[in-house]
């Protein structure tokens, strides 16, 4: 019970029915404790409420019941202490890459020279040196998501929330991005909540994998991943990795079938 940075207490979400339809129970009461420096991946079939849960933590959506505590304080709305990377590309198109990364710092009133140093360091970390003055449109999807990660990190949030950030990328790029993110996490020891529906991605990145059930979403399993750090992509072929993958595949398969029946 010591250093839980984030505490999700019986959080549920019911969306009102559309055009007189029945209300949608997107999320059953869900509880989760996130410790400092955890890298938690949330794995679940499409429509199980992963995004809903993450948006509630971000403060972009309100729970119908329950509450979320960050460092002991209840979350009432969005704030700079929770950095978010969205599945869609959300860089500000009118700002250059450097200005995008500096956005949160500017909102905070960080002086210009300090801002420049932080931006330079994160541009470096996500491998975008030389693209500082490009506009988002001039970058590939992978580069845009790297910028989005840098933009969230530059703000030095207490927790980083990522909603399928690599979902739209091809396999190779996705693999590289996973290593990049993991490298940053290993060095900086951030606390991360990462939503995905890719089993390999969930295992490779996580210190804990949370498996959610099909709609209405609920936490079904909480599996800690004891694979050593630093992790290298070759780890995906080790027996330990494979057995974890088999276990999670079984869990998720069941859910996918349920979801299909429910549909």
């Amino acid at each position: 019970m010591t250093n839980a940075i984030l505490q999700i207490d019986n959080v549920s979400r019911v969306f009102p029915g559309v055009r007189g339809g029945a209300p949608v129970r997107a999320l059953e009461p869900t509880s989760l404790r996130v410790e400092q420096n955890d890298f938690i991946t949330i794995l679940g079939p499409s429509g199980c409420g992963k995004s809903t849960l993450l948006r509630i933590v971000a403060g972009l959506d309100r729970p119908s019941g329950g509450r979320v505590l960050l460092n002991g304080r209840e979350i009432k709305g969005p704030g700079a202490d929770r950095g978010m990377v969205f599945q869609s590309y959300t860089l500000f198109p009118w700002l250059t890459i450097a200005e995008n990364i500096a956005y949160g710092l500017r909102e905070k009133g960080v002086p210009k020279s300090e801002r420049r140093d932080i931006v330079a360091s994160y541009t470096e970390k996500v491998g975008l040196r030389g693209f500082e003055n490009h506009y988002p449109k001039q970058l590939s999807g992978g580069m845009q998501q790297r910028t989005a990660i840098a933009r969230a990190l530059a703000n030095d949030p207490a927790i980083l929330l990522l909603d399928e950030p690599f979902g739209a990328l091809d396999n190779q790029t996705r693999g590289l991005m996973q290593e990049l993110l993991l490298g940053i996490w290993e060095r900086e020891r951030k606390t991360v909540l990462f939503v995905t529906h890719d089993i390999e991605e969930a295992i490779f990145l996580a210190s804990r994998v949370i498996v959610m059930t099909a709609r209405p979403g609920r936490i079904k399993a909480d599996i800690s991943v004891e694979l050593p750090h630093p992790r290298h992509y070759t780890m995906k072929t080790t027996p330990e990795f494979s057995s974890l993958k088999a276990q999670l595949t079984e869990e998720i398969r069941h859910e996918a079938i349920e979801a299909d029946v429910a549909r």
């Binding site: 971000a58 969205f86 500000f92």
Partner: peptide, 22 residues
Amino acid sequence: RRDLVEAAYTLGSKDQGVVKRV
């Protein structure tokens, strides 16, 4: 775009900042 506005909020923008800078 709503997602740009939401991104700004998660980066610490207040309401006025969203109007002025988004």
